[in-house]
């Protein structure tokens, strides 16, 4: 039995010894957390653990015991603002990468002060998008950072 505080709500749950946080979160109903490459490359499964962005596909659930976790469901207001900028700028097409991109962008806004375009691109290097070419995403993120 492990205890996870997810978006401020305490969950106690049994997990398999080799279960990763991605599977635990989805089983508990946090379906914003998406399954992507599962090889720690695409960034789709990003959640915040103790306020730091991590890949939930690679973190053993047992090692998250006692930790605070934030998923996209826990940052709805910020995600709504960012989502509107992404839509305005054509920053998504298929939309599959968007949950992970949003989580990492929100983490970046909390961590970096007035980042340059280069710093933004570097911070978000672990979020792959095969539709946008990143330029429209960068425009949207620039606007979001100014809010």
């Amino acid at each position: 039995m492990i205890t996870l505080t997810i978006n401020g709500k305490v969950h106690q749950t049994e997990v398999e010894l080799n279960e990763v946080l991605l599977d635990t979160l989805r089983r508990l109903g946090y379906k914003s957390v998406k399954r992507g490459c599962e090889t720690a490359n695409c960034g789709l499964c990003t959640v915040l653990v103790e306020d730091k962005p991590v890949l939930s596909c690679s973190l053993l659930s047992l090692r998250a015991d006692g930790k605070s976790i934030v998923t996209l469901e826990g940052v709805r207001d910020e995600a709504k603002i960012l989502g509107e900028f992404l839509a305005q700028e054509g920053g998504e097409q298929c939309g599959y990468c968007t949950p992970g991109l949003m989580m990492n962008t929100i983490a970046m806004k909390r961590e970096l002060v007035d980042p340059t375009d280069e710093e933004i691109a570097h911070y978000l290097m672990g979020n792959l998008c095969r539709c946008s070419g990143y330029v429209s995403q960068l425009r949207a993120i620039r606007k979001y950072l100014e809010v």
Partner: peptide, 12 residues
């Protein structure tokens, strides 16, 4: 170190 994959992976 900063060149390795992404921030989320480097946090792990």
């Amino acid at each position: 170190v900063s060149q390795i994959v992404g921030v989320q992976m480097r946090n792990l």
